[in-house]
């Protein structure tokens, strides 16, 4: 899985998404082809703001092996201000999260390939207190 992780490091660390200049739609995860314009797609990479709001969420109790030490943890569907909805972990207390709450991106560890393997870093979100 090492090359597979490495290949997407730019997008995972930094919320680099894509934008279709033909129809004005933002995508994250990034896409090489716009599903609205298909062959007319004009895709370019863009840095997304990392700000958004919670569309839906779950507090995961029965955690997969790699996430056991974090349980219970919050996963959320987050709509970025540019439009796309992404799946991410939300770093906050389970009782804090609410649909509609503003969140912002932070840099965190997602996991590792065992004690001697590579570390998966990526983007999670935290409540964006400034906006409330």
């Amino acid at each position: 899985m090492l090359p597979r992780f490495w290949r997407k490091i730019k997008y995972r660390y930094n919320l680099v998404g894509t934008y279709c200049e033909n129809c004005g739609t933002y995508y994250y995860p990034p896409r090489n082809l716009c599903p609205k314009c298909r062959r007319k797609s004009r895709i370019k990479e863009v840095q997304l703001s990392g700000k958004g709001k919670v569309i839906s969420y779950s507090v995961v109790h029965d955690a997969p092996e790699n996430f056991k030490m974090m349980k219970p943890y919050v996963v959320a569907l987050i709509q970025l201000d540019e439009g796309p909805v992404i799946t991410s972990q939300l770093v906050c207390k389970p009782e804090e999260v609410k649909i509609g709450m503003r969140v912002k991106a932070v840099f965190r560890k997602y996991g590792e390939e065992g004690e001697s393997g590579i570390i998966y870093y990526g983007t999670k979100f935290v409540p964006d207190e400034k906006i409330g």
């Binding site: 974090m70 932070v106 840099f107 965190r108 560890k109 997602y110 999670k124």
Partner: peptide
Amino acid sequence: FDEDTATIAV
């Protein structure tokens, strides 16, 4: 648990 020197540095 998901923080380390790299995440702090970033």
